[in-house]
């Protein structure tokens, strides 16, 4: 038997976790939790509800955090970001999904989170039990702050992302990317090289340690294609790479390629878009 923790009944990653849980065999029960977020308290509620069953959660920050708390409370192993499982043999993500690990879990109980987008989301026809733990002295959320986006679309939600790497050359070089992004109602992203150089804030970084994006179109300008970056943009439905170096690794991950100097190509695309939209 398996207990699935769902962030909410319609949460995409949680419904993927449900699919993983159903693939384990045996009955599946689903729970959500009501009340202020308190990781240790929530995990204790999950552990109590699970009895001796396997526990599965979504491979989100929160899902991984709660499973890790549950594993620490139970002193059991926990496999994060599992993309396949057969009995006690599983495959899980390393390096943000740019490498896979096949592993064996030595435990009577399986504690797992589902790798994002490795499983199709399940539709859950049955009841989702709502747990309402009592809050003692556990650490809990006391406030929430939201950034002022100034009316701009966020990187995580954008349908199009115009992203720049080392090839952009400077902070000022991003002006032509901003201009193209404004025409496409796109967000501007960048690689880790750019944030480390201080050209853009870290909140713009797409990558394993930045934001993971899944737009309809990702435009990579002057980005070489390090695995750190690919881990953040491989969820894009289409990837257009603009790069002067024909041998750049990014082209191995691209659906469309334009070879040449982005400082000439990006303004030309902007001008062409204006022409088409104006007519």
């Amino acid at each position: 038997m398996t207990l699935v923790f769902m962030e909410s009944a319609d949460d995409e990653l949680s419904r993927q976790a449900l699919t993983l849980a159903q693939s384990l065999g045996g009955d599946v029960r689903a729970v959500t939790i009501d009340g202020p977020y308190a990781p240790s308290v929530w995990a204790a509620a999950i552990v109590e509800a699970a009895g001796g069953d396997d526990i599965v959660g979504p491979g989100s920050d929160r899902g991984n955090e709660l499973l890790a708390h549950a594993a620490a409370q139970l002193d059991l192993p926990f496999a994060a970001n599992v993309s396949e499982i057969q009995g006690d043999e599983l495959t899980r993500l390393r390096w943000g999904g740019t490498l896979l690990e096949e592993a064996r879990l030595h435990s009577d109980r399986r504690l797992l989170s589902s790798a994002p987008f490795a499983f199709a989301p399940a539709t859950w026809g049955q009841e989702v039990a709502v747990l309402t733990p009592s809050f003692g002295d556990g650490v809990q959320v006391v406030d929430h702050v939201a950034p002022d986006m100034g009316g701009k679309v966020s990187l995580a939600d954008a349908k199009v992302v115009v992203s720049g790497g080392r090839g952009v050359g400077s902070a000022e070089g991003f002006a032509i990317l901003e201009e193209l992004a404004a025409l496409l109602d796109a967000a501007v992203g960048c690689s880790r090289v750019v944030t480390s150089a201080g050209w853009r804030p870290h909140s713009d970084q797409v990558g394993q340690t930045g934001t993971k994006v899944s737009p309809d179109l990702y435009i990579a300008c002057g980005i070489s294609g390090a695995t750190q970056h690919i881990a953040g943009c491989k969820g894009a439905k289409a990837l257009l790479a603009i790069n002067a170096d024909k041998e750049a690794t990014i082209f191995a991950h691209a659906d469309y390629a334009v070879i040449g100097d982005l400082h000439e190509i990006v303004p030309a695309i902007t001008a062409e878009l204006r022409k088409v939209k104006g007519s």
Binding site: F78, G97, L100, E101, R104, F251, D255, A257, I265
Partner: peptide
């Protein structure tokens, strides 16, 4: 190890054949 690594695998399908739309502006 209770979570025992057996082997590493490079995921398939990460090498696409990009359609070249052209060179330069």
């Amino acid at each position: 190890s209770k979570l025992e690594k057996l082997r590493l695998v490079v995921p398939e399908g990460s090498h696409k054949q990009a359609e070249i739309l052209g060179e330069g502006p």
